[in-house]
Design a protein around this nucleic acid. Structure first.
Length: 272
DNA sequence: ACGCCCTCCTGTTGGC
DNA sequence: TGCCAACAGGAGGGCG
C-alpha cells in the first residue's frame, strides 16, 4: 500500500516523463474513484503543460500552466506508471494522461480508494490539503512538537502518529516499524510518552522514511513504482506482517493486535 | 476539539 | 479441492 516513500518514489518516477510536456489527451475510463472524477476534467487539462509535480503528505500535486492542476491520491492500491501507448491497458487502469505519440501515464487502482481531482489556483488552499499536519522530513517536525500536541490526547501513540492532522505520511506499516525501533508500545497513550522518547520516535520516523525512499518504496501488496517495478523495502520490515515470527532483537514471537481498526505488530519484550 | 465508527472496493486468505 | 465469508486498509465524514 502506498505510504509516503511510495508516493515520493512515484513523483520522482513520473516527473522526467511529464514535466514541460503538453497533455495531448486525457481519458477517464472509470470515474468512480473515492470521489467521482469530474466529467469536465479532460477539457480543463488537455492542451495545458505540466509545470510542476510534487507531493504534500500522500497527495500528488500536478500543477499546469493554465492555473489549474490535478490532485491525486493513491489510496490503498493505486499506482502511477509511465507506459508506452502501444502497451494495452490493463484491468483497473482507470485514467490515462497522454503526453506525446508514444508515452502516457496510467493510473491503476483495483480498489479505487484513490482520487483524481481538479484544482484551480493555489493547491495548498484545497480543503484536502489545507489542514494537513507537518511533513515528517522537515526540521519543524521534532520532539517538542509531538510532545506538546500529545499532552491532552487520550488516543494511543500509534493513532497519534498516524493522524494526518498531526504529521502526514506515517501510514500503518511505518507506524509499526517506527514504534518498534523507538522501543515504544503502540498501545501506550500518546500523553504517556515522555519527551526523550518522542525524540527517539521522531528520529526513527525520519530515518525509516528516508531509508524507504532511498530504497524505492515498499512493494507490499500491489505497489509498483512508475516503471512498474516493485520497491525493495518489504525485505527489511522488522515487525509489520510478522505475527508469530521471532523478533530480530530478542527472538520472542511478534504480537498482532488491532488498534483503531488497524492491524498492529510489535514485540512485547522490546516495546514498552 | 476530540474520539469513535462507518464507508468506499476488490484481491487475498482461511476455514469448513 | 472448492466455495464463500472474512479480512485488509487511507482517510474523509458524520456523529456524540
Amino acid at each position: 500500500m502506498p505510504e509516503l516513500p511510495e508516493v515520493e518514489t512515484s513523483v520522482r518516477g513520473i516527473s522526467p516523463f511529464l514535466l514541460q510536456q503538453v497533455i495531448i489527451n486525457f481519458h477517464v475510463f472509470n470515474p468512480r474513484l473515492r470521489w467521482l472524477v469530474p466529467a469536465e476534467m479532460a477539457k480543463q487539462v488537455e492542451g495545458a503543460q505540466v509545470e510542476r509535480i510534487w507531493r504534500r503528505g500522500k497527495y500528488i500535486i500536478m500543477q499546469l500552466n493554465n492555473g489549474k492542476g490535478l490532485l491525486w491520491h493513491l489510496g490503498m492500491s493505486g499506482s502511477l506508471r509511465i507506459d508506452n501507448l502501444q502497451q494495452e491497458r490493463r484491468k483497473h487502469d482507470h485514467i490515462e494522461l497522454v503526453v506525446n505519440s508514444e508515452a502516457c501515464m496510467r493510473y491503476h487502482d483495483p480498489r479505487r480508494f484513490g482520487c483524481c481531482l481538479l484544482f484551480d489556483g493555489n493547491p495548498l488552499l484545497h480543503p484536502l490539503i489545507a489542514r494537513l499536519g507537518l511533513e515528517p522530513l522537515t526540521d519543524d517536525f521534532d520532539a517538542d512538537y509531538l510532545f506538546t500536541l500529545s499532552r491532552q490526547r487520550k488516543s494511543t501513540v500509534k493513532e497519534f502518529i498516524m493522524n494526518s492532522k498531526i504529521v502526514v505520511g506515517v501510514g500503518n506499516i511505518y507506524a509499526s516499524e517506527s514504534l518498534f525501533y523507538a522501543g515504544i508500545n503502540p498501545k501506550r497513550k500518546a500523553c504517556n510518552v515522555s519527551k526523550p522518547r518522542y525524540r527517539q520516535l521522531v528520529d526513527t520516523i525520519k530515518k525509516v522514511l528516508t531509508q524507504a525512499i532511498a530504497q524505492g518504496g515498499s512493494s507490499l501488496n500491489d505497489f509498483v513504482n512508475a516503471d512498474g517495478n516493485p520497491g525493495y523495502f518489504q525485505q527489511t520490515l522488522a515487525v509489520y506482517g510478522r505475527t508469530h515470527e521471532p523478533c530480530n532483537q530478542c527472538g520472542l514471537a511478534i504480537s498482532h493486535v488491532t488498534i483503531g481498526q488497524r492491524s498492529t505488530y510489535y514485540c512485547k519484550n522490546c516495546q514498552h
